[in-house]
Design a binder for these strands. Sequence first.
DNA 1: AATCAGATTTAGAACTATTCTAAATTACGA
DNA 2: TCGTAATTTAGAATAGTTCTAAATCTGATT
Lengths: 140, 140
Amino acid sequence: MRHRMSLSTEEIQTKLLATGVQPTLQRIAICRYVLCEADHPTAEQVKEWAEKNLEKISQATVYNTLNTLVDAGLLRVFKFPHSEKVIYDNNVHDHYHFLDESSGHLYDIEPKDVSVEMEVPAKFIVNSMEIVLKGQLKAN
Amino acid sequence: MRHRMSLSTEEIQTKLLATGVQPTLQRIAICRYVLCEADHPTAEQVKEWAEKNLEKISQATVYNTLNTLVDAGLLRVFKFPHSEKVIYDNNVHDHYHFLDESSGHLYDIEPKDVSVEMEVPAKFIVNSMEIVLKGQLKAN
DNA sequence: AATCAGATTTAGAACTATTCTAAATTACGA
DNA sequence: TCGTAATTTAGAATAGTTCTAAATCTGATT
């Protein structure tokens, strides 16, 4: 279940301004991709998309922009064991992940769709919890 | 709860031979550290230890040896979100981790010490599960 | 003990993903 | 319109790990 937002340029601008980020051409374009279209993209994928959809953009700007969006709380970064590359997630709320080991595809798992009952040794005070499930999709 | 084994050189040799790994000087030394003494070390820490405890060892041998031990099933590799570096774990059974966010220290959590009740959307066939808890240790 | 083949070790280059640097460009407010 | 700050850029730098190919070691066979 992807967080697909469909946002107009104005809505993106508003979102950026609301989080104190200057809505430049490059940032708006990248937002169009990472907030609306993409599904757990890597920086590389963002760059590929941006090169197709902008006159010209540098690697540094892609990274700068993604970091800016993360700092602004519009995006989250994750790093999974199966890949060196960071992935960006437009689902900024607490959630878990499922990795389809055959395709490498990632799926968000909403906390409401799982029940985790966890009891840990008393000496640990748990603030947060990262869960990655691995397996395959049911064939059916 | 660390998996501290105290193993003699002979026992290490036997372990290596049993898994089809030639027990060279370097490998035995590194085993002495990673199987007995170390606690979730990085390759860098293994290298530092090895430089103190061997005449001479190269970076490549440290990495080669760690990879060999992982392939042999004597060690597991993990990669956590809070660090770029891979860590090696001599606990090769299924288990989870707790990250003390104040110290950066990792603790193994044995499955028997937690109860995880998890129900996920039916389309996912879950084969394994990585769990990292984050927080602090209870003060007292 | 000497030989040879294969395994291991090594120094250093290469690689990948990301960040840094410092100059050029752009945008915003006065 | 001007000046200052923010943004973008190319390319260098960095970190962690792997690769390469030469040197060394091992240990089985003679």
